[in-house]
Design a binder for these strands. Structure first.
Lengths: 220, 220
DNA sequence: CGAAAGGTTGACACGTGTCAAAGTGGGTGG
DNA sequence: CCACCCACTTTGACACGTGTCAACCTTTCG
């Protein structure tokens, strides 16, 4: 909320944001079919969001971390269409959407902020579609790693070291590839000296090499 | 706008919606880097939206038709991040976003409507991610065709016949496959008696068969 | 300490990409 | 108004990246 607000206005927002909810590792924050009432602002922890097809296949549509907002899929039909699972013990602010809307009518800055958050999600998904539609395994994984460390870095963490919160299978689901291919591609990067991998631990040695893989795709 | 509004309120909305813009076939409504000022409601015509990577590859992220709203990608950074091209002569309503926002503060129904539109776009992209990440060529094309005729049918057109407005290459870009694979998959469906194809003309003979291909994916 | 879950690696299969050639249709200029 | 041309589509042969299946290794947790 980076906006010039009076104390009174800040207080109104604080009131909406009061409720907290803890979600243990592996538990659902919400799932497909749940009534939509609120958005959630992640305070602590790491989530994955996914949709599933009628025949049971899962597609991870994103990984969310501290400061990000989830639940916007539920607005259109008053029912959530995707699942949100905590990948580690987590805590969220519950933001009752009806309150948000009424507050947004009073506070133009808040209103615009909400529009931006939804637009950002649309733009993010656009770039995931590029990744899924146009890129090969190496490019996908390079893009995934760079995006992940960039977001972690923005939150004060290392830009070269990560402990992954998700399995190879979940990474693969997100990137549209099988877990074996994820594992093999990690190994390939490791053999090339671009990263160091040991299970969930990943250290990026040559970020430039990853960027190169991401951009100059078809030139190898 | 399916909402109980007074005449006065309707008039305010009409004022915002007054401006029109014509876009000829092949022309851009907006493109990557353009300043964002407005959303656009399609009155007539058929559009494709796409993003492009730094090395020039294009990913079609959607096809939009009458009644749909485009341009929401621009809100987050005040700059459009994707391109919108008319696939046939088209006309849109220009909806200046600042006006929309101020009006939405007065009219809760309009406000919620806007949130729904953005949420619907997020949900749509979720299902495209499922398609790109989990499905094979036949399933993708089946899903594409069913979605297309369903939307056309909702607008009063036939639910079994379509004249495609886009090339095989554009379909392929959207579905994450090459144009030859699109063509081959059309032929395969045609050989199976599921559809009739002649260039841009497609007639769906067995919608059930398409639905079956879409759901029972890995059971062939 | 043992079992279960997750990760790595190998061999092979298969779907889709690539490259090439030929067919089709619509728009435009003569 | 017709014919040519160009963009688009179809189809074939082959290549290659990723999926599949299986075995084995590592780590975590009860």
């Amino acid at each position: 909320m980076p906006l010039g607000l009076t104390n009174q206005e800040m207080k109104k927002i604080d009131d909406v944001v009061k409720a907290r909810r803890r979600v243990k590792q592996g538990e659902l924050l919400f799932s497909h079919g749940d009534l939509f009432t609120s958005l959630y602002a992640i305070r602590i922890g790491f989530f994955k969001s996914s949709v599933s097809s009628e025949d049971g296949r899962e597609q991870v549509i994103g990984f969310q971390m501290t400061g990000e907002i989830i639940g916007m899929d539920g607005i259109v039909n008053d029912v959530h269409s995707c699942n949100a699972v905590a990948l580690e013990d987590a805590e969220v602010c519950v933001l009752p959407f009806a309150h948000i809307e009424s507050l947004a009518r009073e506070l133009p800055g808040l209103q615009h902020h909400i529009h931006k958050i939804m637009s950002r999600e649309i733009v993010r998904e656009n770039s995931v579609m590029m990744l899924l539609g146009n890129m090969r395994a190496e490019e996908r994984l390079a893009g995934f790693l760079l995006n992940l460390v960039q977001r972690l870095h923005a939150r004060g963490f290392s830009q070269s070291e990560v402990i992954l919160r998700m399995t190879r299978e979940e990474i693969g689901s997100f990137l549209g590839m099988k877990l074996e291919t994820v594992s093999r591609t990690f190994s390939k990067f490791s053999d090339a000296g671009i990263i160091e991998v040991k299970q969930r631990y990943v250290r990026i040695i040559q970020a430039d090499a990853l960027k190169k893989i991401l951009n100059l795709q078809r030139l190898n």
